[in-house]
Amino acid sequence: MSRKNLLNLIQVDADMPVKTTASDNKLVGQVASTMREEKARQARADDIERRLAEGQAVIDLDTALIEPSFVRDRMPGDINGLLASIREQGQQVPILVRPHPEKSGRYQVAFGHRRLRAIQELGLQVKAVIRTLTDEELVIAQGQENNEREDLSYIEKSRFAQRLKERFPREVITSAMSVDKAELSRMLSIIDSLPSGLIDAIGPASGIGRRSWQELADLVQKDANHDPVALAQSEEMQAMSSQDRFKALILALKPRRIVRGLPEVLSTSSGQRLGHVKQSKTKLEITVDRKEAAEFAAFLLNDVVALFEERRANNVQKKEA
Rank of each mutant, 00 (worst) to 15 (best):
V229Y: 13
A64F: 12
V126A: 10
P17I: 09
V71W: 03
G207A: 06
V259H: 12
K39S: 14
E295W: 03
A313C: 04
R273M: 12
V97M: 11
E235T: 15
V179G: 07
N80K: 08
E145K: 11
R115T: 04
A110L: 03
I140G: 01
P263N: 11
R36L: 04
E264R: 04
Q56T: 13
A201Y: 02
K165L: 14
E183R: 01
L307G: 05
V179Q: 08
L96T: 04
P204A: 05
D13S: 14
L27S: 02
K127Q: 12
L82V: 09
L266D: 06
L219I: 01
S189I: 02
I155W: 00
G105D: 14
A161H: 01
I140P: 00
V109F: 10
L300D: 03
G271D: 14
E320L: 06
D135A: 11
P76N: 03
E215H: 10
E166P: 01
E310K: 15
S234F: 09
D151E: 15
V58G: 08
A45W: 04
E148N: 11
R131Y: 15
P195I: 05
L164I: 10
P255V: 15
F168D: 03
R149T: 13
K291Y: 03
Q214M: 06
Q272P: 12
Q120C: 15
T20R: 06
